[in-house]
Design a protein around this nucleic acid. Sequence first.
DNA 1: ACCATTATGGACCGAATGGTCCGTAATTAT
DNA 2: ATAATTACGGACCATTCGGTCCATAATGGT
Lengths: 192, 192
Amino acid sequence: MARPRNFDEEDVLRKAMALFWSKGYESTSLADLLQTTGLSKSSLYETFGSKRELFLRAFQLYKKDRMDGLTAGLSQPDAYLALTNAFKTVLDGKGNQMGCMTANEAIELAPHDPKLQEMVESDFYNIEEVFRQTIERGKENGSLRAGLDSRKMARFLTVSLQGINVMIRAQAKREVLEDFISVALEKLNERE
Amino acid sequence: MARPRNFDEEDVLRKAMALFWSKGYESTSLADLLQTTGLSKSSLYETFGSKRELFLRAFQLYKKDRMDGLTAGLSQPDAYLALTNAFKTVLDGKGNQMGCMTANEAIELAPHDPKLQEMVESDFYNIEEVFRQTIERGKENGSLRAGLDSRKMARFLTVSLQGINVMIRAQAKREVLEDFISVALEKLNERE
DNA sequence: ACCATTATGGACCGAATGGTCCGTAATTAT
DNA sequence: ATAATTACGGACCATTCGGTCCATAATGGT
């Protein structure tokens, strides 16, 4: 009954996400967003309300995408293989020198923005949970030693992941990350 | 032979450092800097040249301060105690929910600013080195198991530290960090 | 064909950005 | 006391920032 949009909302969100992920919130200007998405200013504001709201939706989409990917990557029965693979995937991630958007926002916005602090915190908790469930499963099906403290180990892996994300974004040498991962993952199969 | 400054350059640098550390580079405005340091705009530009140069000097000062502190903290003969103490100090650090300025800049600036990428990289390397030397010392005086791979373990600790820094800045619950540290530091005294 | 409705381009806005410049104040050496 | 030198306050600047608004274009329903 009216003129249709000539853009796909999710498509725009993903383009905005890529920008915010790469440059951060403050350093991404409206001009950047308009250029990358191809939208006009009025369309962007009509559709998303403000730069901040657009960012929030883009970040939510990131969190969802990433959790889906992580969950999928951890789905194989052998929990040890699942977890080691997940970490090694981070290293080889296709075009990724951008690190993790959640880690980025943990540093840029969380300290001074309660809403984002909450979003970041919940994402970290979700990661912890999916790690924990994977470890539980591993203990049940024998792919991980039964004596592991699931929650503790899940937290260890969660924080480890953030360390990796920082180093990736700083373009650290691959060997550094390989050494880190190699040591960190020993915690999964060592005997007590 | 001329009018003297009525401010101390290092004092100003430290105030600027605190601001950049807390808010990041982009989100710290000139107005913030002038207000916090008490300088006039002309004095600031006369003395430091530009916002960026001021930032660079503040960041250099941060790196120096932090390395001095870390080195001092690791100076005790017992390397295991030295390292565990260093990590636990990070948790209890006085007013620190700001994380580590180097980690912050690794995320905010390093990916798009070669000069900063280099500064961050060298800081990480320096941290790795001081960890490595501490571990070497521990192996020599028997406070650490001789079988440890010093470089590998130093890298493990360096990246671990960055994970902690992200979590601190995101105001993660203390238990999460305690769990992480407890697991990570087991790597230092486990038998093979 | 035309009306109701929505999308869009672009003009416009005030505020804030980093930065320059200059007249004046303060100081020391002579 | 004065000349030389440096520091400083604040006016000024162009640009960019996020955001608003409106006139016009495009579409679907009837």
